[in-house]
């Protein structure tokens, strides 16, 4: 325990300074970079929708009114209705929660599993690293959609499985990022020093390596959110994700496209929602990368 205390003296110095510098830079970027600000606002809006949206939904998003099917925008239905007379505004509002939750979980799976694997590979090296690298290369060789379809094909179509599939397919990217960052940190003198004075691997990883690897992983994850929104919606579009009557945006887009010629709003409304969410994550992700990338400083 005594030893641990001493180690912390070494450990905290670069970590705290780095974190403070990052926070400051992030704020500067967000206030100076207009695109980043737009992204942040979009994401904040999406978050707000996901949290409070369902309370503002004027109708039950699954309630059908066949008489009022494919109605265009009106006072009763601000964004019109879909092919079953369901209120599109309510569906988009409630769908925000599904979309956001699905993306967060998918990215969570990718980062948690991918980053820890990458970290272990970079830190320990050796046979584990060589074998895992081959495996990751193999995963990378598949187009992500194909891999996701295989995963869903094995597990069966549902939103949960689609999220799992998107998480698994994004895994290699996080492995790569975490491994590369770990390799750099592993060579640093403070890591060698910590090990030399008898610090355990677990401790060294937790207190010295992980904080320095987290930055690039967080950036990748933010950009990855846009990808997850897109991929989850894509799987639902193909009928491999959310099953009816879940108001998932991709599934809504998919069923709406049959009416593109006579009721284009049914597909357009969820389509715009997907575009807005992806735009927000991309803009914010770009700004974060600029803020955290040492080469940009």
């Amino acid at each position: 325990m005594q030893r641990t205390g001493r180690l912390d003296v070494f450990a905290d110095e670069p970590r705290r300074a780095g974190a403070a510098r990052r926070r400051g830079l992030l704020w500067v970027i967000l206030t100076r970079d207009r695109a980043a600000a737009v992204g942040a606002v979009l994401i904040a809006g999406l978050l707000a929708l996901a949290v409070v949206g369902p309370w503002f939904a004027p109708y039950d998003p699954t309630r059908q009114d066949l008489q009022a099917r494919r109605a265009t925008a009106s006072r009763e239905h601000l964004l019109g209705t879909d092919e079953f007379g369901r209120d599109l505004l309510s569906r988009v509002l409630v769908g925000a929660r599904y979309t956001l939750a699905a993306s967060v979980v998918a990215v969570g799976i990718g980062t948690a599993a991918g980053a820890s694997l990458g970290l272990a590979m970079g830190y320990f090296g050796g046979r584990l690293d060589r074998m895992a690298t081959r495996f990751v290369d193999m995963l990378l060789a598949f187009p992500y959609l194909l891999l996701a379809i295989v995963v869903v094909g094995v597990l069966g179509p549902s939103l949960q499985n689609a999220v799992l599939a998107v998480g698994i397919t994004s895994l290699p990217i996080y492995v790569r990022v975490a491994r590369a960052a770990t390799l750099v940190v592993r060579q640093q003198e403070f890591v060698a020093a910590a090990l030399a004075i008898g610090g355990s691997h677990g401790h060294t990883i937790r207190r010295l390596v992980l904080p320095n690897v987290l930055g690039p992983v967080v950036v990748t994850a933010t950009v990855g959110m846009a990808h997850a929104v897109h991929a989850t919606a894509g799987l639902s579009f193909l009928g491999l994700g959310a099953q009816p009557p879940v108001p998932e945006w991709g599934a809504m887009l998919s069923s709406g496209r049959n009416y593109l010629l006579d009721a284009p709003h049914v597909a357009t409304v969820p389509g715009i929602a997907i575009v807005v969410a992806m735009l927000g994550f991309n803009l914010l992700g770009d700004a974060l990368r600029d803020a955290l990338d040492p080469r940009m400083r």
Binding site: Q64, E83, F84, G239, Q243, P244, S255
Partner: peptide, 22 residues
């Protein structure tokens, strides 16, 4: 598919929930 989705809603009205798989 549309008939199945409409049936899902009609059953829901009387208290029968369905997990629909298309």
């Amino acid at each position: 598919r549309e008939i199945a989705e409409a049936i899902q809603e009609q059953l829901k009205v009387v208290g029968i929930q369905t997990d629909l798989k298309i």
